[in-house]
Design a binder for these strands. Structure first.
Lengths: 194, 194
DNA sequence: CTCGGATTTGAGCGAGTGCTCAAGAACGGG
DNA sequence: CCCGTTCTTGAGCACTCGCTCAAATCCGAG
């Protein structure tokens, strides 16, 4: 088999394993089993399991970027652009991209060497959210990067909770009440304003 | 040593390990080392490492409940009560309680048997946030349990991100702009309203 | 003190891990 | 066809894991 095909199969296996079994069970033998090849190939092609998992994270970011570009190209005005941003985030949740991200972030806590690598690969997420805000009315409320931090945090948290009681209903209901949640957050800032 | 003392030492060791090294490194030998005793004691007193970690989660919830009760007793009106809610959440982040919670939730994804146990112990968090909202002006915006889901999700997400680029500044700045974030979320709900 | 149950210990088992390595298979240019 | 490079394989090493167990220790009641 060509190198590219084997690499793709391994990356796909790594993505699926991270999504379904989590980082703790993303062993070389498990991933290779899903890819239908020998576990030694991971070390031949990627050098270590960790590098393969980071390659999987890169692949998720790439898929995400392509989808984002397509939606942006379709948008004809600011309102549609903002809608596109929300669509991409919701699709991330459905496709398991957020799950892969959460797994790698959680693993990075226990591994100092992994931390900057994951942080670097998270930048597109924040950057994407910030881009969607730049030039919109929301931008006057604060630096887009700062606001984007909160948006990304909420999506990561929703993924964690969704995994827990495998019922997407609460998250979906939340999206339907996004304006209510906004008012709620205003309420939580009472202390500072009083 | 008395049974209670040994159990307390092991629970404290488990909490510290979860906070600083994460679930993946919360092994029997590591925890027992922090507690200053033999690893076999974990199985004698708790039956398994997993049960000890759940006991640690219970302990965090207990500490949290005590702090909450104290703040509620001090509150003299609705505004102070809401401020107390926010204080408890922020203290959770500082004390590492949220980190313990995030670790256990992430671990529960890979372990179906662990999932309901963690979900049950998460209920106080959601319940606490919901209680703080019940009877307040925010309650008319939607079921308090639903709004509480979003609040808890955001705090969990902030913990994940704070670990990543070990800089608490973004989260702190976000709290200072809680009203801005609220407006931002309104903006993200544009699609449904347009 | 003696005794007996509760507690603690260190050694060790079987399983799973990341990773290496020598050997074989596949493939493509000469 | 042949040969050299690239790719793949299964065995295996050193390590850590959760957990068990027999033996040692502690400690309070009688």
């Amino acid at each position: 088999m060509a190198t590219a095909e084997t690499r793709d199969a391994l990356v796909a296996g790594a993505m699926a394993t991270l999504r379904e079994k989590g980082h703790a069970h993303a062993s070389a033998r498990e991933i290779a089993g899903r890819a239908g090849c020998n576990q030694a190939l991971i070390f031949y092609h990627f050098g270590s399991v960790e590098r393969l998992l980071l390659a999987a994270l890169d692949r998720v970011a790439e898929l995400r970027r392509e989808r984002y570009q397509a939606l942006v190209d379709e948008s004809r005005n600011l309102k549609e652009l903002v809608a596109a941003a929300r669509t991409v985030f919701e699709e991330d949740l459905e496709l398991g991209h957020t799950a892969v991200l959460v797994e790698m972030i959680a693993a990075a806590q226990a591994n100092a060497a992994l931390r900057p690598e994951v942080a670097e690969r998270l930048r597109p997420w924040r950057g994407f959210a910030a881009d969607a805000l730049r030039g919109t009315p929301a931008a006057r409320l604060g630096p887009p990067e700062e606001l984007a931090h909160g948006v990304v945090a909420m999506y990561l948290g929703l993924e964690l909770l969704a995994v827990l009681d495998d019922d997407p209903a609460p998250a979906a209901a939340l999206f339907e009440r996004a304006d209510s949640l906004a008012t709620l957050l205003d309420l939580f800032s009472l202390r500072r304003r009083s």
